[in-house]
């Protein structure tokens, strides 16, 4: 029991921190522009594919360094030459644009890399068990994922709350005109934040690619969960996104590892059911089976009981 708990917690942390890398950029960009970037997970996918191609020639570590930079530069260009122009036509236009971009990236990925799953491998350097606990191995690569994610979170937190540029960004999010009137180039700041946000998604793609497999549907798989996190955490809140990411990561991990199911619940309630009942499929559902739905269930509950999310503020 304890071993299941410990490993589920560790795996939950890995997933949660990975999700946070995506959610942090998405929520920052939302705070700035007031619109959800539906193409955000596409930048994550691009990170994985760029890193895969680079790793074939220069190895994993070069991919980890170069791919996020490429993704960030692409993100900055998208903001500068497309989103900024679309922004003038309102939020609906922006939403439709990011939707379109997501499809475009997916098609482009299939065009250039093909529809099959890529053999993107974690580096040999990290192909060893970091530790063995209760007879189970925890891979060094997963430990590396945790280290990178925590490192990025701390750097981001420090940058946003302590550095001058972070203070300018915070102020520009809520009072863009005032910040511009003080002599700061707000459009440039927004472009940089968009670039950094997408680069973070790129980092997530680079380190998740070898574990969660690199295929053209990877953006769709993670994309919807990231939106759930941003809404549960409270739109625009970095702290909220962090808590929600870990919550979803751990929730899914515990659910998958558990062997509980509806039969246990019914037994506990002292109810009996017949195998011939038309709802037999429902009575026999197990927690691991419904694990993928749990984040969405949580989203529904949050929207009913706390529509602003965990740390979100009500719009005035």
């Amino acid at each position: 029991m304890l071993e299941v708990f410990v490993f589920s917690t560790l795996n939950g942390l890995v997933t949660g921190l990975l999700l946070f890398m995506l959610a942090s950029g998405l929520t920052l960009i939302f705070s700035m522009m007031g619109v959800l970037n539906f193409a955000h997970a596409s930048f994550y996918m691009l990170g994985a594919y760029f890193a895969y191609s680079i790793s074939l020639k220069l190895g994993f570590w070069a991919g980890l360094l170069i791919a996020p930079l490429l993704v960030g530069a692409f993100g900055a260009l998208v903001e500068r030459y497309a989103l900024r122009r679309v922004h003038a036509h309102g939020h609906v236009a922006e939403l439709v644009f990011t939707f379109g971009l997501a499809f475009l990236v997916e098609e482009a990925v299939q065009f250039f890399w093909g529809a099959d799953t890529k053999n993107y491998q974690s580096p040999d350097l990290l192909n060893f068990p970091l530790f063995t606990l209760f007879g189970q191995e925890f891979s060094a690569y997963r430990g590396f994922m945790i280290t990178i994610s925590v490192g990025i979170f701390l750097a981001l937190y420090y940058m946003l709350t302590r550095s001058r540029i972070g203070i300018i960004i915070q102020a520009a999010i809520t009072h863009p005109h005032t910040v511009a009137n003080l002599g700061h180039n707000v459009p440039l700041i927004f472009m940089a934040v968009f670039g950094v946000g997408t680069a973070l998604a790129g980092v997530a793609g680079v380190i998740a690619g070898p574990v969660l497999t690199t295929f053209p549907g990877m953006a769709v798989v993670l994309g919807s969960i990231v939106f759930v996190i941003v809404v549960i955490g409270g739109l625009g809140s970095l702290g909220g996104a962090f808590v929600a990411s870990l919550m979803i990561g751990l929730l899914q991990s515990y659910a998958i590892a558990s062997n509980l199911g509806m039969p246990d619940l019914l037994n506990w309630l002292g109810l009996e059911f017949s195998r011939d009942h038309p709802l037999n499929d429902l009575w026999t559902l197990t927690l691991p089976q419904i694990a993928p739905v749990l984040p969405f269930l949580l989203l529904v509950l949050v929207l009913i009981f706390r529509p602003t999310g965990l740390a979100g503020k009500r719009e005035e």
């Binding site: 102020a171 809520t174 009072h175 009137n181 003080l182 180039n185």
Partner: peptide, 23 residues
């Protein structure tokens, strides 16, 4: 653009003060 005008030496204090409340 406003930031460029400010850079040239024009300062502006708006009517509603616009102090950044969380900073």
């Amino acid at each position: 653009p406003s930031f460029e005008i400010a850079h040239r030496g024009v300062g502006y204090v708006p009517e509603n003060r616009e102090v950044f409340p969380t900073l």
